Computed example of a mutant assay.
Amino acid sequence: MAADGNHVTVLTTNARRVSDFWQPSTSEAPSLPAHEVLDGVVVERLQLIHPWPAPYRFGLLRRAGLWLHLCRLPAGLVRPAQQHLSRWMPPLRGLSNALRQWGPEVDLIHADDSSWDGLLLAAATAARRYRKPLVVRPLMHLGNAWVQSHHAMAHQVSVYRDAAAVLALSQREAAAIEALGISPQRIHIIRMGVEPEIPVSPETLDTAGFRREHAVGGPIVAFVGANTYDKGAFALAEAVIQLNLEGLPLDLVCAGPQGEGLRAFLQQQPSEVQAVVRDRVHILGIVDEVTKHRLLGACNLFALPSQVDTFGIVFLEAWLHSKPVRQRWRNS
């Protein structure tokens, strides 16, 4: 858009990692600038704040809102309390001022990922104040009741009902949104897609080189996404370890954020499996697009046994490389 001559401003935060939302960053990297221009795009970063008792405040307030939802009290009672709690989801300095500055100038307000309910409600408030159409893409996670409640609390549902449109990624998500009392006429399925060509040249892809760089000679199971329990990284690591112990040698290569949580989980495993962990589980952390496609090109199987995803676009990216895909749906 900027290359076409449009004025583009991105309003974001100074977070480098997900954990920065609830605790001060421990990164040794310099702080991100509050204002900069990247390739013609103006980037404005709002500062995250961490009031006492950080890092516990974020989790405590989140659980309080979910507890109100799961108690099944009347929505009219819990909605005001959840709206109040959402002010710290995430705790941003200057969000209201930024929306007052930009709200009158835009033609449409789009709220993405309703689990960040503070941003969702801020967007809804700005849409009402400046009489702009609001489009919401909840990105609902469709696991058990606890997982679904992150997107189905009373104050979130009230925003969906008032929105001009609610976007779903799949028929399953659309059905879950409609079950919350949202008119099906307002729900639009915008399916995921990728360009039909691998965006990396064969020379750059160099899958044999990727294997050499990571000292992997046999079959590779690839995982791309947040390295968390809900995404299935822990279960997949356990499965790969067990298969190795049973005599089937294969390597797991994980790419994505929150690798420190997976490392901590693996360090807690029994001593007799630590050699397998050391030799067969590779945690790359956050990688660039080229490295991601090199991994997908080099692997023998892509697995994302997530309990929560609506639909992962990385499935399509793995299919671009003609790789078999293993996923998991959980309906209860």
Rank of each mutant, 00 (worst) to 15 (best):
89 M>R: 14
112 D>Y: 09
92 L>S: 10
110 H>P: 05
98 A>Y: 02
109 I>D: 12
117 D>F: 01
108 L>G: 00
111 A>W: 06
116 W>G: 02
104 P>M: 12
109 I>H: 11
106 V>N: 15
114 S>Y: 05
109 I>M: 11
115 S>W: 05
93 R>L: 06
105 E>C: 03
106 V>L: 15
109 I>R: 08
93 R>G: 06
107 D>L: 00
108 L>D: 01
117 D>Q: 14
88 W>P: 01
118 G>F: 02
109 I>G: 11
93 R>S: 13
116 W>A: 14
116 W>D: 15
97 N>I: 01
118 G>Q: 11
116 W>R: 13
105 E>N: 06
116 W>Q: 12
114 S>A: 15
104 P>V: 05
102 W>G: 07
110 H>W: 09
98 A>G: 09
105 E>F: 01
113 D>G: 01
94 G>D: 07
103 G>S: 07
93 R>I: 00
102 W>E: 08
114 S>I: 00
104 P>C: 12
108 L>T: 08
89 M>Y: 09
109 I>A: 03
110 H>Y: 14
117 D>H: 12
103 G>L: 07
97 N>A: 15
113 D>A: 04
104 P>W: 11
99 L>W: 06
101 Q>N: 03
104 P>Y: 11
117 D>G: 02
104 P>H: 10
90 P>G: 02
103 G>K: 06
112 D>K: 00
91 P>L: 00
102 W>H: 15
97 N>M: 10
114 S>T: 13
88 W>G: 06
97 N>C: 01
94 G>C: 11
92 L>Q: 12
101 Q>I: 10
106 V>C: 15
111 A>E: 03
105 E>A: 12
103 G>N: 09
95 L>A: 10
100 R>Q: 13
106 V>M: 15
107 D>V: 01
90 P>R: 05
117 D>M: 02
111 A>I: 07
104 P>L: 12
90 P>A: 04
105 E>W: 01
100 R>G: 04
105 E>H: 07
115 S>H: 07
89 M>N: 13
104 P>D: 13
106 V>D: 15
113 D>R: 05
95 L>Q: 10
114 S>P: 01
103 G>F: 09
116 W>M: 05
93 R>Y: 00
91 P>Q: 08
94 G>V: 04
99 L>A: 07
93 R>H: 11
110 H>C: 00
99 L>P: 04
97 N>K: 12
108 L>M: 09
